[in-house]
């Protein structure tokens, strides 16, 4: 097999620069990596919440109509009909949507804030293993042996949310690249550049942060599921309320917030 040509001095200089920058940045990984994970999850959760907020308004409208019809039947409770008006209904619906979104943020971002790497100070060749109870294989083995609600659903939710977040980032990058560059590059090249950078940024987000978010969530779910040596049934039900909060948003993310194909059209 032909051997590749040795790198040129300029290439070596560039690699040296990149390595040096990486080395300098490595001292701050404990800050920017957890923040990056949190930001990715928050963006994904918001994209999913965008999909469900109209449905929340519909539910609040119907709940209020039902309440009004019940309260209006009796003299004593009739004034209660006035408690919630049109403007309040919308505020309630949006408050519910916001509370839901923030609750999902807290549930899914909390493990990400505890993200630590085995040795973030080793700068040149990065040790990217996350400090915890093991890698994907060990965790999946334990998941098969002792499936729990948290072990099954939380990582899936984070995976879908991270995908939605990746799409939102890519969409933002495409617009931010295309619109300022089309003036001097021309429509076709600027469009191509925007599309390519959108796909690259989505791939980079999922490659650098997406899998880490899923692994960290799986680690956290693994630890929580076994904390205090619960019985099998207890472990199964542990974390169920929080999981119920995030699962609909995960499905919403999949159904309405992951326009993957749009970047190819």
């Amino acid at each position: 097999m032909p051997r590749s040509a040795p790198p040129s001095p300029a290439q070596r200089q560039f690699e040296g620069l990149v390595t040096e920058v990486s080395r300098k940045l490595s001292g701050f990984r404990w800050v920017f990596m957890p923040l990056g994970l949190v930001a990715l999850i928050a963006v994904g959760v918001h994209a999913a919440a965008d999909v469900v907020d109209d449905r929340i308004l519909w539910l609040v409208d119907h709940a209020d109509a039902l309440f009004d019809s019940l309260a209006g039947r009796f003299q004593a409770t009739a004034p209660w009909v006035e408690l919630v008006g049109l403007a309040q209904r919308v505020k309630i619906a949006r408050s519910v949507a916001l509370a839901w979104e923030l609750a999902a943020d807290v549930i899914l971002c909390w493990p990400a804030l505890g993200y630590r790497e085995r040795d973030a100070r080793k700068p040149v060749v990065f040790e990217t293993s996350i400090t915890s109870t093991g890698g994907f294989r060990q965790l999946l083995r334990r998941l098969r042996a002792r499936p729990t609600t948290m072990r099954i659903f939380r990582p899936v939710a984070v995976a879908l949310i991270a995908l939605a977040g990746g799409c939102a980032v890519a969409r933002m990058v495409q617009g931010a690249v295309y619109l300022p560059t089309r003036g001097f590059l021309g429509d076709g090249p600027a469009g191509f550049l925007g599309r390519v950078l959108a796909l690259v940024s989505m791939a980079a987000v999922l490659y650098a942060l997406g899998w880490r978010a899923v692994l960290r969530t799986l680690q956290d779910a693994d630890t929580m599921s076994d904390d205090g040596a619960p019985s099998r049934a207890e472990a199964l039900w542990r974390g169920l309320p929080a999981t119920v909060v995030v699962i609909p948003l995960a499905f919403a993310a999949l159904a309405g917030a992951t326009p993957l194909l749009s970047f190819f059209r």
């Binding site: 990984r29 920017f32 930001a39 963006v43 959760v45 977040g165 987000v205 490659y207």
Partner: peptide, 22 residues
């Protein structure tokens, strides 16, 4: 060798989007 830089850039990108989209 440059993975640290990539991680940093991606984290900043996500923070930028989160600032305007959440």
């Amino acid at each position: 060798h440059g993975r640290g830089l990539l991680d940093f850039l991606v984290a900043i990108l996500c923070l930028w989007v989160a600032a305007y989209h959440t």
